[in-house]
């Protein structure tokens, strides 16, 4: 039981990271990116391919995947999504929905339907706490990466001019322009950052678990659940939501865990749609 709770908590950091990019885009820019799960999987494939090609540690692939995903996000937002966001919330929602299945089937064509997994040296290393309780090093590492990214993102959004200009623009476009923000690029930068977090998330999901070209929508729903539980745009909320989801999956077992977490989510949506941490 204690062992399972440890797993659940460690999963939480990973799930929270999967959610944070989507949460930021919704909470701050007002865009629901239904392709966020596919972008996570795309980044995982990128990492996996680079890992094999270069023979390096999976962690080093971030040097390439993070900037690549940032650029993808920036261009996507700049040329397509900014344009459709002007045509109402539904249009943008459906465009990202279209993107999600273009990406999914594109990945199926390129990478086949087989599962992949990235392996590191300490794949099955454990820190022994007692006879029946261990802390798996890999899960601990990915969880810490997740927490670290979320903390860095939080500091970035609240302490830097770029981060604040994103928040300011979402509050009042005209006023943001008047203080000197070139608002044309702000949402594109935000999307770039969101996909950069997806790049890290792809790595942290692709090391402990196998992934498929079709895994994206599953992670999207987890990300959505984390965001709903924690409240949109809330960083601490995302961590707590992630842990709740992690515990539900571990304690529910492999067959019913997902079902239980979906039901928790639906009940939550019905009773408290604003999340745990919003008044």
């Amino acid at each position: 039981m204690i062992q399972q709770i440890i797993y659940g908590i460690l999963y939480g950091g990973v799930f929270a990271l999967a959610a944070i990019g989507m949460s930021m885009m919704f909470g701050i820019v007002g865009l629901t990116n239904l392709a966020h799960g596919e972008f996570i999987i795309l980044a995982a494939f990128l990492s996996s391919v680079l890992c094999t090609a270069l023979g390096c540690s999976p962690f080093l692939t971030l040097i390439i995947t993070v900037p690549v995903m940032f650029i993808v996000g920036f261009i996507l937002q700049k040329v397509l999504i900014n344009y459709v966001m002007g045509k109402g919330a539904n249009a943008a929602l459906l465009v990202t929905f279209g993107l999600s299945f273009i990406l999914k089937d594109g990945m199926l064509q390129i990478f086949s339907a087989d599962s992949r997994r990235m392996v590191v040296a300490f794949q099955s290393a454990n820190i022994r706490i007692s006879d029946s309780v261990v802390i798996p090093v890999l899960y601990l590492v990915v969880c810490l990466i997740g927490v670290a990214v979320i903390v860095i993102l939080h500091l970035f959004m609240s302490k830097t001019y770029v981060g604040q200009s994103i928040r300011a623009t979402s509050d009042d476009k005209v006023a943001a322009q008047l203080v000197g923000v070139n608002i044309k690029n702000v949402t594109a930068v935000a999307m770039g950052i969101a996909l950069a977090t997806a790049a890290v998330s792809g790595l942290t999901l692709g090391m402990p678990w196998p992934f498929y070209a079709t895994s994206g929508s599953g992670y999207l729903l987890i990300a959505f659940g984390v965001v709903v539980l924690g409240g949109m745009g809330s960083m601490i909320g995302a961590l707590v939501g992630g842990v709740i989801f992690g515990l539900a999956q571990v304690l529910g077992g492999s067959n019913w865990g997902v079902f239980i977490s979906y039901i928790i989510l639906l009940i939550f949506l019905a009773v408290r749609p604003q999340g745990l941490f919003k008044k």
């Binding site: 609240s158 001019y161 604040q164 200009s165 928040r167 300011a168 509050d171 009042d172 005209v174 006023a175 943001a176 008047l178 203080v179 000197g180 923000v181």
Partner: peptide, 25 residues
């Protein structure tokens, strides 16, 4: 600089962050 009609503060940001945004250039 223009101080727009109806002040148009960044309502979800703190006073300090609003002023800090003023020093954006």
């Amino acid at each position: 600089a223009l101080v727009p009609q109806g002040s148009r503060c960044f309502v979800r940001m703190s006073v300090e962050d609003n002023l800090r945004m003023g020093s954006y250039p």
